[in-house]
Amino acid sequence: MSSQTLVDLLRGGVVTLKIACGAWVVSAVLGLALAVLQDLGIAPVRAVQSSLVIGLRSVPQLVLLYLLYFGLGAVGIQVNSILAAILALGIADAAFSAEYYRAGFMTVPRTQREAGFSLGLSPVGVMMRVVVPQTIPFVVPPLLNSFVGLLKTATLAAAVGAPEILYRGQNAMSRTGQLVLVMTVIIVLYVAATMPLTRAVAVLERRVRSHAHG
């Protein structure tokens, strides 16, 4: 493999990383918003929220991506392929992040909320100043796991022509014909990026759990 091809793949890797990071931020923020909305428990909001979560969980990310990229494009809102991937993958993942936050909220004793209310905080104030800060240790491991997942799903962006690693890989394959070599490089890069991260998250998870029980 020429060094040119390798550099090209690495550049693709940077784009993949960009998509995954962007989608992760979208997912973490939107997921928090969804979970807080649900927690506040205003009936109509809750109904909309839960159908949104079900919808996002049931539609393939690829279809969401097509809707954002081709769908919005056809009604006059041009989104570039990288941004479309960030939004589609982030929004789809938010449905799962919301669950992590919600599970985290349940670890906060009710008395904490009552104490917050007795200090005169509003429901939103109690959430943002009392409940959410205490949930952070519990949501960090699953959110990191979802980052690892996003690193992999970021390859979907190839379907709309974003120059990420798999897209460049496919081009390199048809250019050089070195299919096995290119694929091996991609796989090695992926294993090198995700395996240590997965291991680290597992360790972190165990620590958080033992800390919570101890």
Partner: peptide, 30 residues
Amino acid sequence: TLTATILVSETFQPMQVYLVLAVLYLALIV
């Protein structure tokens, strides 16, 4: 999904076709 993509190339209505596709997935998965 491929059937929908082919349909889009014939109808030029990606928003509508892919929304119908999303509904089909919902009907299957929910």
